[in-house]
Nucleic acid binder design. Sequence first.
DNA 1: CATTTTCACTGTAACGTTACAGATTTTAAG
DNA 2: CTTAAAATCTGTAACGTTACAGTGAAAATG
Lengths: 343, 343
Amino acid sequence: MKNKANFGATVTEASRERPTLKTIAFMTGLGITTVSRALKDAPDIGAETKERVRMVASQLGYQPNRAGVRLRTGKTNVIALVLSIDEEIMGFSSQLVFGISEVLTGTPYHIVVTPHSHSKDPMLPVRYILETGSADGVIISRIEPDDPRVRLLSERNMPFATHGRTDAGLMHPFHDFDNEAFAHQAVEKLVVRGRKRIALLQPPSKLTYYTHTRIGFQTGLHDYGAEEVPLRVTIDTPLDEIRNAVETMMRSSNAPDGIVCLAGSAAIAVNAGIEAAGKRLGHDVDMASKESAPILNWIRPEIITAYEDVRHAGREMAKAVIARIDGVEPEMLQSVSQPVWKA
Amino acid sequence: MKNKANFGATVTEASRERPTLKTIAFMTGLGITTVSRALKDAPDIGAETKERVRMVASQLGYQPNRAGVRLRTGKTNVIALVLSIDEEIMGFSSQLVFGISEVLTGTPYHIVVTPHSHSKDPMLPVRYILETGSADGVIISRIEPDDPRVRLLSERNMPFATHGRTDAGLMHPFHDFDNEAFAHQAVEKLVVRGRKRIALLQPPSKLTYYTHTRIGFQTGLHDYGAEEVPLRVTIDTPLDEIRNAVETMMRSSNAPDGIVCLAGSAAIAVNAGIEAAGKRLGHDVDMASKESAPILNWIRPEIITAYEDVRHAGREMAKAVIARIDGVEPEMLQSVSQPVWKA
DNA sequence: CATTTTCACTGTAACGTTACAGATTTTAAG
DNA sequence: CTTAAAATCTGTAACGTTACAGTGAAAATG
C-alpha cells in the first residue's frame, strides 16, 4: 500500500497519464507483481483476480510500456526489414512492407525499415541489428547462394526469414518465388506461339535465383526444342542500357523471336527496345515476363505475364520470423510460391 | 568501486557482452554518472576526462541502450511513418521511405512504418502513437483541408510533418508538390500543341490537393483559352474503371483532345483507354501527366511528363520533423517543390 | 491435531539510463 | 590564513517491467 500516498495526491491528474501496472495495482488493491502475472495469465493467480485485473486494465486502456519490457527482458517486439534501396523501381518493397504489416497488425510487433545501398557493405545493417540487439527478428532479400548475412544471423541465433533461397546447406526460413518454374513455363509459352530463338533477361549472377532461372530456362529450351540468344544485360542494369542492348539485339541478324524477362520494370525497357528496333510484339517477337504489379498488360496486352505476389511473400516471411521467434523449427518455415499466368 | 567485484569475475566474458555505461565506468575508474555526462559533453566534466571516456567508449563500440534511454527520458528516437496501404501502386511509398531513411541515417532515429487501410479509421494509427508515446515524430500523407490528424497531433504537441498541405489556418511543417503549378503548366503544354478541349483525371475531392489541382487547371483553361471535358473518375479509382471511363469518353462525340493526369499509374490506364477507343496519343489526343517514377516515357514517348521527386519529399519531411523535435518553429519547415518537365 | 501441500499473492532487485542533490578537491578572494 | 567560489566528480532514485524467492493462509494428509 505504499503507493497510496502517491496516488491520493494526484488521482485526477493521474487519470490523464498513461496507465502502468502501478495504476492497475492501485485500483485493484493488488501488488504490481500480481497484476503483471495476472495479465500474463500465470497459473498461480486466482481466476477471479485475473478477471478483475483484465477488466480494469482494458477499462484504463492499459498497454505495456515497450521500453520497460525491452529493458527488463531484452524483447524488442521489433521486426527489422532490411531493404536494398537500389533494387526498387516498381514498388516492390512497398508491397513487402504492406504484406508484413498485415501480419504484424494484431501482434505486439512493429516493423522497422533499415535500408541500405547495395553498393555499400550489405553486412552493415545486419551487424548493427545484432550488435545493438535492436530487433527480435530480421527479414532480408536479394539472397546469394552462400549469403554471409544468412551465415551471420544463423551463427548468432537471430531469428530471420529470407526472400529467396540459399544454396550452401544453410537451413533457414525463407519464402521464394519459383523462378525455375517461371522460366521453364515462360519458354513453353513462347514455344507454343512458335518461338524458337529465345533471349533471357536474367537476374545478376551473384543472386541465388539467377541459377534457378538459368536451370528453368535451359531445361525449357531443351524440353521444347528452342535455343538461346545471348543477352548481356541483367534486370539490375539501368533501364536505358537495357533498352539499348535490346534494340541492338533486335536489329542484329541474330535477333531472337522470343524474350523471357524476370522483372516488370525491365520488361518496360525491353519493350521500348523492341519498338525502337522497329519490331512488333506479338508479330516479330513475343515476350513473357514476371511482374509484381499488374501493369504490363495495360501497356502492351501482348506481353505474356506471370504475377509474383510480393505482398503474399511479405505475409509469409512475417509469419515465418514470428514462428521462428516462437521456436518453430526452420524446416517448417519454408515456402515457395508458383507463378500465376494471366489468362 | 562496488562494480569491481562484478567485473573481476567476468572480465573475459564481459568483453563479449554489449558494453554499457557501467563497462566504461569500470574501465576508466570513473562513476557511471560521470561517464554519462562526459559522453554528453556536459560542462562540469574535465576536458581530459571527456577525452578519455570518449576514447574508451569508441574503443568498445559503445552504443547507448535505446530501452534505457527511452524508459528514463521518454525519448524514443523513432519517427513513425503512417502510410495508406491503398494509395500505392507504383512504389510511391518506397521512395518516401528511402528518402526519409537517407536523412535518418547518421541520426539516432529509426523509422517505424505504420500502415493502415484508408477504408478504416485513419485516426487509429495516429491515436495509437499518441497514446503509447511510441514515436518522437510522425509523418503523414493524404492530407485533407481540415485534417483531423493534423488537429490532433498539433493539440497534443506531437512533432510531425505532412506530405501535402491543410487549409484551415493550421500551422504545421509540410512538404508539398505544387499541383496547382503542375495543372496550370500541363494545360499550357497541351494548348501549345493545339489542344483546346481538355479532361482532367484529378485526385479525390476530399484531399487538399484536389483544390490546388482544380485551381491550376481552371486558371490554365482560362489563361490559355481552353475548355474542360468532364471526367468522373479520380486517380483513386481502380485502373480498369479508369480505362473504361476514358474509353467511353474518347468514343463519345464529346471526346477531349487533351488529358491532364495527376498520377503515373492512372496515366497507364488512361493510355489504355485511349488506345482501346482506337485513338492515338500525339495524333488524336495528347496527355500530360505527373509521375513519381520515370516510366511513362518508356511506355509512350508521346506522353508529356512532369516528375515528382518523392524521395526528395521524404528527405524534406524527415528534416522537418527532426527540426520540429528540436524546437524549430513550424513556419520555417514548409516547402513546396516545383514540377520538372521532361525535355 | 500436527504436518505437509497447495493456493494466492507480494516485495525486492535488476535491466541501462539520466536528473538531482550532494561531496571533495582546488583555486581565488578577502 | 580563513572563507568563498569554482571545478570535478559521484551516489541515489526513478522510469516500467519481470524473475525470483519468498509469505501467509487454507486445504489435504497422516
